[in-house]
Design a protein around this nucleic acid. Structure first.
Length: 569
RNA sequence: GUGCCUGUAGCUCAACUGGAUAGAGCUUCUGACUUCGGAUCAGAAGGUUGGGGGUUCGAAUCCCUCCAGGCACGCCA
């Protein structure tokens, strides 16, 4: 289904051709309601290119434009903008057609790709903490949107289940383990022995050496150490699963670092053989002499002592994803500190695979505490994600008790989870991913402003109308949009199909969040101005249909963000 | 030292990638309720877009240069 934007863009293109002008500029939603619904700067761009007066060019374009079936006569404004205002009848027609459209007008992509999305990636022997929220929540939402648009998505959890920290964990396991504590809270005990060993190792060279030995034995396949490692991984996975359950986030595959272990020697060999890597100071290194920004930043893929490092694993991972999973695209939702690392890895992959694949590092900012520093507990520790999510549900529950004590116990539990988890996710998704943001319970759980509960509440009100009416959405194929509030809302709903694909341009979830906020806003304005159940036909059915469509857009939009909606709250 | 990211209203954030008079929310102030869930709506106030140059019809956005904060820069991940 075509959107107004794509229809107008086509008509503009035709108009330019008819006027003997090349394609230029763009057709975008109007920056301000005063200017109508859509605008184009084509005349400004062409005027500049050809050294002509832009308003004259605009006049010429408008003369050749055939948009009467969609718009009022286009207006030329300012330095030469051409503004388009949709005719109400056209909006009504379009909106009515969305009612019968399962996908709410959102077209599937014309070029579906297989996309591996690497997100979350917690470390074994460490609890998931607040720092994992952004990667996990962003990655999940991107996966949902890409899938809905028709891409073939593989969600991969690249768990940190291998590496030098295991030397310490195994040393701690053998020397410091408290069995009863392990029974009670396995992960906490593993974290404890890891931390204690770490502290010991700092001051004691003997311990350091022992840890190194344990690591060597593990990597050599020593049975006892492998068993310990397996147990640690299993315990950690249990903790992860609990968090994923709470978040309702699930993976297609979970190929952790250890998955690639036996591929590492082959990776290095191949890179050496092809001349991409070379030996330098005893290590195997890839240089990027022809790329100025990387010229003095080589990447080590095998250490002087013969050991492999995380760069080796990441090269093996790209290989696997491109060669075995047949990915056209790989999206890494990983924090900004690893920018340089991924530049190197992508370049290595490009040299090896001919730069065919689209590899993206999707970075994001940090979550800060109220003190504007990295969010930590009072004692300076990372905030465990599980506790944070549970607190979110607790706080949501408290608000529900105040506002709607009559809900049943089962409903309260369900609603508290949807609101609490939704609030945490939305706080993250509703802002530009690159900026740091301040974590605030009050703000994210507020029922006012751009928050999940506000959006959920708009949905709940719509459900309430239908409960009260005791009927479902009417099946009608014509809408009567009498008031400006109705027209504004309808136009807004038509934009859903324009917004969703746009999110993937630069992985900006916040534009979808902002859009949904505007929908809720327009709905509330409509709700104030237009009685639904008390109005006369045909307005009544038309308004009910508008409510239904709004509810579906909110439901679907929040679903694409990974946020659930309750029926009551 | 070099490179990358960030800097927008008192606070939290937008601005569709160069468009028109930089927009929301919170807070504050003023209005609207025997309400389909007021958990709302309408309005007001609030700005030298970190500073200074430059590019052009037009800059928060691009270039240069400072300032502030963060991150990264051969054998950690």
């Amino acid at each position: 289904m075509e959107t107004f934007q794509s229809l107008l863009a086509k008509k503009l293109s035709d108009g330019l051709a008819a006027a003997g002008l090349p394609d230029a500029g763009e057709l975008t939603p109007a920056t301000d309601a005063r200017f109508g619904d859509y605008q184009t700067n084509a005349a400004l761009v062409l005027g500049k290119q050809r050294g002509e007066n832009s308003r004259d060019v605009a006049k010429k374009i408008v003369e050749h434009l055939g948009v009467d079936d969609l718009c009022e006569p286009p207006a030329i404004a300012g330095p030469g903008f051409i503004n388009f205002t949709l005719r109400p009848g056209v909006v009504a027609e379009k909106t009515a057609s969305l009612l019968a459209n399962e996908r709410l007008g959102i077209a599937k992509t014309e070029s579906p790709r297989r996309i591996v999305i690497d997100f979350g990636s917690p470390n074994v022997a460490k609890p998931m903490h607040v720092g994992h929220i952004r990667s996990t929540v962003l990655g999940d939402a991107l996966a949902r949107i890409a899938k809905f648009l028709g891409h073939d998505v593989i969600r991969d959890n690249h768990i940190g289940d291998w590496g030098t920290q295991f030397g310490m964990v195994i040393y701690g396991w053998k020397n410091l383990l408290d069995q009863s504590a392990l029974q009670q809270n396995p992960l906490a005990e593993i974290v404890r022995i890891y931390k204690e060993t770490n502290a010991l190792a700092i001051s004691d060279a003997q311990v350091r050496e022992s840890c190194r030995q344990e690591l060597v034995k593990l990597q050599a396949g020593d049975k006892e150490n492998i068993d310990i490692w397996n147990e640690c991984v299993a315990f950690s996975m249990q903790d992860f699963e609990h968090v994923y359950e709470l978040l309702d986030i699930h993976y297609d595959i979970q190929c952790g670092e250890s998955f690639y272990n036996d591929r590492l020697p082959g990776v290095v060999e191949r890179l050496l053989k092809s001349g991409i890597a070379e030996i330098s100071e005893g290590a195997v290194v890839v240089f990027f002499r022809d790329i100025p920004e990387l010229a003095d930043k080589p990447c080590i893929i095998r250490k002087r002592d013969g050991g492999f490092n995380y760069a080796t694993t990441d090269v093996a991972t790209v290989d696997y994803r491109l060669d075995h999973l047949k990915a056209d695209s790989v999206w890494y939702v990983v924090g900004a500190p690893q920018i340089l690392h991924f530049k190197q890895i992508f370049e290595i992959a490009g040299r090896q695979w001919g730069y065919k694949a689209d590899l993206r590092h999707i970075t994001f900012g940090s979550i800060l505490g109220e003190d504007r520093k990295l969010m930590k507990t009072r004692s300076g520790e990372n905030v465990p994600l599980r506790e944070l999510l549970e607190e979110a549900c607790r706080r949501a529950r408290k608000i529900i008790e105040e506002k709607n004590p009559d809900l049943s116990e089962a409903e309260k539990i369900d609603v508290a989870q949807k609101i609490g988890i939704g609030a945490v996710k939305y706080a993250d998704l509703s802002q530009y991913r690159m900026t740091d943001y301040v974590f605030s319970w009050e703000k994210m759980l507020s029922l006012q402003g751009n928050t999940a509960p506000y959006l959920q509440n708009a949905y709940v009100r719509i459900r309430s109308i239908f409960r009260k009416a005791g009927e479902s959405a009417p099946k009608i194929d014509e809408l009567t949009l009498g008031s400006s509030a109705e027209i504004t809302l309808a136009k807004r709903l038509c934009q859903f199909a324009e917004i969703v694909p746009q999110v993937l341009n630069d992985f900006r979830l916040n534009i979808l969040a902002n859009y949904l906020f505007e929908v809720a806003n327009s709905f509330h304005a409509f709700y104030e101005a237009c009685p639904v159940l008390k109005s006369e036909e045909p307005a009544r059915s038309s308004r009910l249909a508008l409510c239904d469509l709004t509810g579906r857009v909110l439901h679907r939009g929040l679903d694409l963000l990974g946020i659930k909606v309750p029926e009551k709250m």
